[in-house]
Structure formats: structure tokens, C-alpha cells
Design a protein around this nucleic acid. Structure first.
Lengths: 333, 333
DNA sequence: TGATTCAATACAAACGGTTTCATTGCAAGG
DNA sequence: CCTTGCAATGAAACCGTTTGTATTGAATCA
């Protein structure tokens, strides 16, 4: 492979001039520029990104920590990240963390070994829980999920509490009072937030909050089906199911139908996230829309700012959600 | 940040010794090894991956070209790739190509600029269609979809022709004769292969193959819904829909139901891929299972071999598919 | 005309490791 | 005792760019 020396020799200039021909062409005379470019072309010269990066000490690469790459919601956030990364010529490394702290830590180490410039965390573990304050401070880090508390680094998230409250209010407005909760993993902060929002709506409607049944489980269809199965067979008088994700809701719908119930006549179901499949479900899923792509775009934008040293805007962005009413939940008759 | 000199000084050895302490510890005496490690620990020394990579000229990074990151099937393949990449300490870069040749070319250039060691292509565009033979030969490349023809580089794929034939035969066995085809994009090779397989089954059953209606469209739920809408409203006598992906099938189910049809009583629908949602559809989707994760694992394994110089096994792996019978298709009564 | 300025370019150091080759000291062999 | 071989270590070159500083020559100015 041709290198800068070869081009320099062929063009009859120094390596420095060749370098500048690419990085800062206007510094060269029209004439030499043309000669250098020609020589580079002839030799099919491509500057070694390795050498450049080593010299300049910026990789233009960002690592994304994804709890589960195959999960549709994360995939959409990733897609948003990718879009603005590509626009700004950043490279994207991705690591499937399986929500494992050690893998996440290994990811952070990649900025200490200067493999990447920064990391975007899609999981909810906070930087401070992974590294001691001292080393953490040096790491360009942005989180794209609501973590527990408000860290000092940038976060882009939705207001899980309010979104859940809105959805629960909607269900209450439809007349439902005995609502089962199909929660996600109990130890997840989002789960707790959404549960709080749900409870809050109940108390706003003067519904006894002590009697709500909540069934915890993984954020997956299988989890939803299982939770719904348990919940529905134990509590026959429930009229609505408040699921904490669309996947859970879809699993629940399957379970309810397998139990011989008709939807939404016998039981209403609501989801959370607004993944594409919800629209094509039977019945189409009423849910709360979470702007996944925009979360990703925003996160990458903030990372770019961070790396560029811009500190424009507050560090915490909370993006709006919206109720999307379809037909899996209906007025209690 | 501490560097190798600092550690060397503190341990009273030369940088070379420190380097060896990490890369080849058994070359050192028990005593100095301990001293070096201690010094490194004290200074919180992490070797600069940048410098290493620059010197050694291997990045241990692989680029994955994904036509659409948010697509569930690709996400699952990616997940498989990630798994074996992580196991073998490779880093993964990903680029959403939107199936654009220029973006794909830019990806290939990353090996010429030595940013990554190789590239895995999830799209169906062949290496030879992106680069002139000469430069192409130098690029470690593996493809994880059936391309047009059989390239000389490694490919891992399924047998689309046979899988489609099997599915079509199943439909025929159930008694269906007037089957509408909900095809994917017309210019895609997989689409053509699956169509060939479908036609082949028909002719095996002595069904007139000239009269089949095929409706092309994007590999998406929206596309499927639209195609089904068109096809169903024009051909009322159709008893089954052969969809070329689960997403198309799911869109079609929605469309059929919106048209007032009952499934599978009025019309049978089959999918392709076996994405998780198919299992939770109403009715649960009969489809052909494609081992997405294993395709990814296999692809990354082959990439590893390629980079290591092992040329074990033939370059083309075709992985098995399986009919998964659920209830969206039933015997014609 | 000589001094000054400026644009264009060259020179060489630097980036932080790895690796080849040379050196040293000690144990084993003759 | 002298040689030989080997394990442990050090010195220095090297990887391919970028960039600060020096140099050159021509144009401008007094």
C-alpha cells in the first residue's frame, strides 16, 4: 500500500505538503495541490487512518452500550444514533452488554485505552455505579434512558412517571377500576417510575391503590404472556391490563386469547413504547409512544457536543411522549 | 495518563520489559514481572490501544454493513455476530447502509484506510459489484445473505429456493390452489429465489403456474398490508397468501382482517423468517424458520478464520431452515 | 537598493507502544 | 578453567502520519 512518502516523492514535494493537501488544501499553491492530488490518485493512496488517529489522538469513534441488540426498541434508538453519527462522520462501535456491569465497565475502559472517544449508554446503570468518581469524570458519557436520580452527565430520556400516569388516567377515564399491572423487571428504575405514575393516577381518581395486583417479569413477549397468565387466572374480575411495554402487552394479548377471552370486549390491554408491531396486532394496541429514534439522535448529538467541547443546553433532555389510542382498550360497558 | 515509560521508570526496568509483561509474561522472571505489574497498578496504567494498533497493524475490529439496523431480522443476525465477536475479542463497528452502494463502498474503504480488519455484509450486494476485482481481492469480506451467484469469498446463507418450495408445498398439501404471492422488492435476489421456489412447488403439483398473482413491495408490515389490500381486492377467489417475510405476512393479516375476512377460515397466510412476533400474532403465524443468530455467529466465525488465515471448510455455508406450523394456515375445507 | 513581509514549502520531532537484535550473567559441559 | 548456551533484559529502530518551526524566494515598501 502506498504511503505518504511515496506520494511525496512522486509529486516532488515533502510528506508535510502531501498531508496538507488533504487536511488544508488552501495552504498550497494551486499548482502543487494539483500535482499532489494527481500523484495520490495514481498511487491509489489512502492515508492510514491508524497513523492519523494515533498522531491526532482522536478516534472519531463512539461506543454504544446496548443491553440487548435484538430488542426492537434499542434497535430503533441505535438507528437514531447511527443516523447522526454518520452525518457527523463518527464511527459507531456497539457492544451487547446483556445488562452486565462488567461488560459495561469493559466498554468504559475503551475510552481509557483510547479506543473510542466516548460512550453512549442505553442501559440504565449510571456511570457512577460503574467507575469510581475520579476516573468517571474523565469519560465523555451520555445516557439514553432514565437512570435513577439525576447524574451530572448528559441524559436524554422520557418522563416515565408522567407517561404512565397519562395512560393509567386514560384507562380510568374509560371506566376501568380493577386494573392489573404487567410490570417489567422489578429492579429496573423505569419499572418503578411507571408504577409510581400508575399509582398516582389511581389516587387522583380516588381509587384504592392498595389493592392493585402487579405482576413483575422480563420486558418480553414471553414474560408478558406468563405474567398475564398468572394474573388473569388469579384475578378473574380484572377488566384491564396495564402493560409496561408493548412486548409485554402483546404477550398478554396472546395469553388472554389463549385463555378464551375476547379482546377488547372481555379485557382491555395497553402497552408502552409504540413499537411498530403494535399497530398490526389484533386488536391494534393502545400504547404510549416513545420517540425512540429521536432519543438516539439526541443522544448522539449531545455526545458530539460533549466531544467538541460545546456545552450548549442543559445536560438533561426529556423528550415528549404521546398516547396513541387504537383499539385494544375500550370503554367499560 | 500514565504511559509505558512511567511504568518502566517506576519498576526500574526498560519499556520493552513492561511491554512484555503484558504481551508475553512468561518471558520475564517471576520477580520483575511482579514489580512491573505492581508499578502499572500503582499508576493505573492502561496501554494505549491506539499506539498498539498502529504499531501492530491489526485493529481487531470488524465492520458490519447492515441495510437497516432497526429491522428485527438484521438485528438478530447482528446479535449473533456480536456474540462471537465478543468471545474472540473483536470490536464491532456497524454502519446502516440503507442498501446504498456508496455507503457500502465507504465501508469497504475502511479496510483500505486500515480502520477495520474486515467487513461483514448483511446486504445482498456482492463485493465485486462494489469494487474493481483488483482492490476487492485484498479485502477480508464475508456475506451473510444469499447473493446473486456464488462469489469466491465466504458466504453464509440459507437455501431460499428450497425453503420457499417447502412452504409452498405445504400450502398445496393443505389443498390450496389459488395462492397469492406477497413478494418483497422485485429487484432483490432473495425475492427471485423464493419466487422460483414457489413456482417450482406449483409445477410439482401440476398447478398452472402462469396464473399466479404476485404483488411486489417492500419487506415491511406496511408494504405487506398494502400489497395484500391490492391483491385481495382484485382477486376475491384467492384462498391463501404466500408472504415472503413475516413482516409482510403480519401486514397482510391486518389488511385481511380490516377487509372483514376471518383468519385462517377465509384465507390462509404464511410468512418467512420466523421472527418472534409471529408466535404472538393472531392467528399465530405459520412460517419458515431462518436461523438468524446462527447465521450471524457463523459469519463472524468465518471472518475470524479469514483474518487468522485459516482456510478451513468450504467458503459457502448454507444453513438449514424449518417449517414452523402454527395456525395462520389451515386445510382448505 | 536593501529591508521587510508573506506565502509556500521543507525539515524534523513527536505520538506510545512493539520488536529485533545485542548484551549480560549464570549454569552446564568439556 | 574456558567455552557454550540460554534466560532475562535493555537499546534503539520502527510504525505513518501531523505539526511547529525554519527556510526560501518573491513581492512590497521605504
Amino acid at each position: 500500500m502506498a504511503q505518504i512518502r511515496d506520494v511525496a516523492k512522486r509529486a516532488g514535494v515533502s510528506p508535510a505538503t502531501v498531508s496538507r493537501a488533504f487536511s488544508d488544501p488552501k495552504k498550497l499553491s494551486r499548482d502543487t495541490l494539483k500535482r499532489v492530488l494527481k500523484a495520490a490518485e495514481d498511487l491509489n493512496y489512502k492515508p492510514s487512518s491508524l497513523a492519523q488517529v494515533f498522531r491526532v489522538k482522536r478516534t472519531n469513534a463512539v461506543l454504544v452500550l446496548v443491553p440487548d441488540i435484538a430488542n426492537v426498541l434499542f434497535a430503533r434508538i441505535l438507528s437514531g444514533i447511527e443516523r447522526v453519527a454518520a452525518e457527523n462522520s463518527y464511527y459507531l462501535l456497539v457492544s451487547d452488554t446483556k445488562d452486565d456491569a462488567d461488560i459495561e465497565r469493559a466498554g468504559l475502559e475503551m475510552v481509557e485505552t483510547r479506543r473510542v472517544d466516548g460512550v453512549i449508554q442505553l442501559g440504565e446503570r449510571r456511570l457512577g455505579d460503574l467507575l469510581p468518581e475520579a476516573s468517571a469524570a474523565r469519560i465523555p458519557f451520555v445516557q439514553a434512558t432514565q437512570p435513577n436520580g439525576l447524574p451530572e452527565y448528559p441524559v436524554v430520556m422520557i418522563d416515565n412517571f408522567s407517561a404512565a400516569e397519562a395512560m393509567a388516567s386514560y384507562l380510568l377515564t374509560l371506566g376501568h377500576r380493577r386494573i392489573g399491572v404487567l410490570a417489567g423487571l422489578k429492579d429496573r428504575h423505569v419499572t418503578q417510575e411507571r408504577l409510581r405514575g400508575f399509582r398516582r393516577a389511581l389516587s387522583q381518581f380516588d381509587v384504592d391503590t392498595s389493592s392493585v395486583t402487579v405482576e413483575y417479569g422480563p420486558y418480553s413477549m414471553a414474560g408478558g404472556a406468563q405474567s398475564a397468565m398468572r394474573l388473569l387466572s388469579r384475578n378473574r374480575n380484572i377488566t384491564a391490563l396495564f402493560a409496561m411495554s408493548d412486548e409485554i402487552a402483546i404477550g398478554a394479548i396472546r395469553a388472554a386469547q389463549d385463555l378464551g377471552m375476547r379482546l377488547p370486549e372481555d379485557v382491555s390491554v395497553t402497552g408502552f413504547d409504540n413499537i411498530e408491531f403494535g399497530k398490526y396486532c389484533t386488536p391494534p394496541l393502545t400504547t404510549v409512544m416513545q420517540p425512540a429514534e429521536r432519543i438516539g439522535e439526541m443522544a448522539m448529538t449531545m455526545m458530539g457536543n460533549l466531544l467538541r467541547g460545546d456545552i450548549t443546553g442543559g445536560p438533561h433532555q426529556v423528550l415528549g411522549t404521546e398516547l396513541v389510542i387504537r383499539s385494544s382498550a375500550r370503554r367499560l360497558s
